[in-house]
Simulated assay, not measured.
Amino acid sequence: MDNQEVLEKLLLKLVYCDGIGITNKWKILNFAQKYAEIPLTLDVIRKRIQPTKNWGVFVESWLQTTPEWLEEKLKDQKFITYFSKEYPENLRHIADPPLVLFYEGDLKLLDYSTLAVVGARLATPYAYNVLYQLIPKLVTKKQVIVSGLAKGVDYYSHQLTIGFGGKTIGVVGCGLDLCYPKEVLPIFLEMKKNHLVLSEYPKNTAVKRHHFPMRNRIIAGISQGTCVIEAKERSGSLITAQLALEYGKEVFAIPGEIISGQSNGCHRLIQDGAKCVFQWQDILEELPNY
């Protein structure tokens, strides 16, 4: 077994290890890659990672994930790892990239020009009307629309893209055998079959609050630009936009009315340098592959 194969097996083992986060998992993987001759014992691992109150949880899951156990768990799942040639190149360069991308659908969509469209879960008719103006034009220009398969702006973005004959990618914060929220089930099933749904979490992984900002880094990472619609001051969509800026991607914001505060996050983005968008051309002229 060569070193690359050993690292791949370690990577898959770490995917199923609880009790530590992605940063510590990368510390373990990087140590194993750099010091291949040192046996990777639990004692060695403990000395190389940040202290964690869940060390006992990690030890239990580490011991549980034997090669046979992993083979059984992974046999009915499609995935690419960080070491796969199909792994998106732009994801390799973000902080703590996903170790694995589990997927259903057409993985080749990752090779196309992609635009993230995110915004309010409690979207107003204004958001839908804006998307109805933008999405059909973007679709005709061969843009693949990326979003988070949530309610509101995410759902409308996927729905309109499919309705106008385009392709779309959804990134979720749970295993691909689960649909959250349940209201998006019909489009979730359609996308798993004819588009692409991604997750860094294996099957049987439930939804947890901290999974959503983690998911957002993937949305921003695989997209050439991020467009925000109806984001409040403390919206999760602003996390995606901030990450996009950190990754050197284009960020676009749709202005809205100022009374309700529904778009105050978008207005703040514009003040901070995001491009103010009022027509579809405003987006395409900034994307590198257009």
Rank of each mutant, 00 (worst) to 15 (best):
L122K: 15
V118F: 00
P97V: 11
K73P: 01
Q77H: 02
A116I: 12
P88H: 09
Y128Q: 12
T114D: 00
R121V: 01
S84M: 03
D106A: 09
A116S: 11
L70P: 02
S113C: 11
P88G: 04
P51C: 12
F79V: 00
L63M: 11
V117I: 14
L70A: 11
F79A: 01
E89H: 07
D111S: 10
V100K: 02
T81Q: 05
A116R: 11
H93E: 04
W69D: 10
Y112F: 12
T52G: 06
V130G: 03
E86K: 14
P98T: 01
L115P: 06
L110H: 03
L63V: 13
E71L: 11
E89R: 13
P67H: 13
L109F: 10
L74F: 07
A127C: 05
T81R: 05
Y87V: 09
T66Q: 13
P88K: 14
R121I: 08
P125E: 03
V118G: 01
Y132Q: 04
E71P: 10
N54Y: 12
L70R: 14
Y112D: 09
V117T: 00
A95S: 08
Q64W: 03
G56E: 05
Y128F: 04
P98Y: 12
A95T: 01
K73Q: 12
N54M: 09
L122P: 01
A116M: 10
G119Q: 05
V130N: 02
Q133A: 08
D111W: 00
A127H: 04
E89G: 01
Y82K: 04
N129M: 11
T114A: 11
F79Y: 15
Q50A: 15
L91G: 03
W62F: 05
H93R: 03
A123T: 00
A116D: 03
G119A: 09
P51F: 09
P125W: 01
V57Q: 09
L101T: 02
V59I: 13
E71G: 15
L63C: 10
E71T: 13
L110T: 08
F58T: 06
R121N: 04
L99D: 08
E89C: 03
Y128E: 15
E89P: 05
